[in-house]
């Protein structure tokens, strides 16, 4: 009986723990980190500074305006509620980018919009910028609600960090951690 309980406990632990994967695109060298934990998928894919520049220049931003963003360690971020035990609710402000002995949330879209006020950008460019970012808060129903968007850590090129994503399901707080993520060169 004790052995059965131990086996059950180990199975439960393994289903709650994450198996982090790291894949490298053979053509570009760009890296994706992904984990699946508590029924939620979280992934970060590097966006190279030139790719970020290209995207926003093509959306009407000026080279001056996009420069600091492009160098702010940008990721394509995906969070999806595959089979969490309820609605996944999160605020990006509750997440942590941990690098060395420093920990802070990702840079929020509101902070970027304040910084961009200096550049007199068109309304269309600002709308594209705003909605291309990973949502600052969201609620995902089970069964496949998800988002894909850009997220910036503000770290320097090649910096190493852990991302701690936090969300609530029915009042319980859960974490998904991506370890040793590296900013694009």
């Amino acid at each position: 009986m004790n052995r059965l309980l131990l086996l059950l406990a180990l199975l439960l632990m393994s289903s709650a723990s994450s198996a982090q994967t790291r894949t490298v695109d053979p053509d570009s060298g760009v890296v994706t980190w992904e984990t699946r934990v508590h029924g939620v998928t979280l992934s970060l894919t590097q966006i190279l500074p030139d790719q970020a520049r290209a995207f926003y220049l093509n959306r009407g931003m000026t080279a001056e305006a996009v420069e600091s963003y492009a160098n702010a360690c940008v990721y394509m971020t995906v969070l999806r509620n595959d089979e969490a035990p309820g609605v996944v609710r999160f605020r990006l402000a509750d997440w942590s980018v941990v690098s060395g002995d420093r920990s802070r949330p990702p840079i929020g879209v509101d902070e970027w919009l304040v910084r961009l006020e200096a550049y007199a950008l068109t309304k269309a460019a600002l709308i594209a910028f705003r909605w291309a970012q990973f949502p600052p808060e969201q609620a995902y129903q089970p069964g496949g609600d998800w988002n894909q968007g850009m997220l910036t850590t503000g770290l320097a090129p090649n910096a190493d960090f852990d991302l701690v994503a936090r969300w609530d399901v029915a009042g319980e707080t859960y974490e998904g951690v991506l370890r040793h993520v590296r900013c694009a060169p």
């Binding site: 894949t23 695109d25 053509d27 570009s28 760009v30 994706t32 998928t41 992934s43 894919t45 966006i47 030139d50 790719q51 520049r53 290209a54 995207f55 220049l57 093509n58 394509m76 995906v78 999806r80 291309a132 069964g143 496949g144 609600d145 998800w146 894909q148 850009m150």
Partner: peptide
């Protein structure tokens, strides 16, 4: 960045990333 405009200008994200599946509920 002209090369990047041509490759990525119309897409938010690089084509190399494994894209998450579209769900159906």
């Amino acid at each position: 960045y002209q090369w990047a405009w041509l490759l990525f200008g119309f897409w938010l994200l690089p084509a190399y990333a494994d894209l998450p599946p579209l769900t159906h509920g």
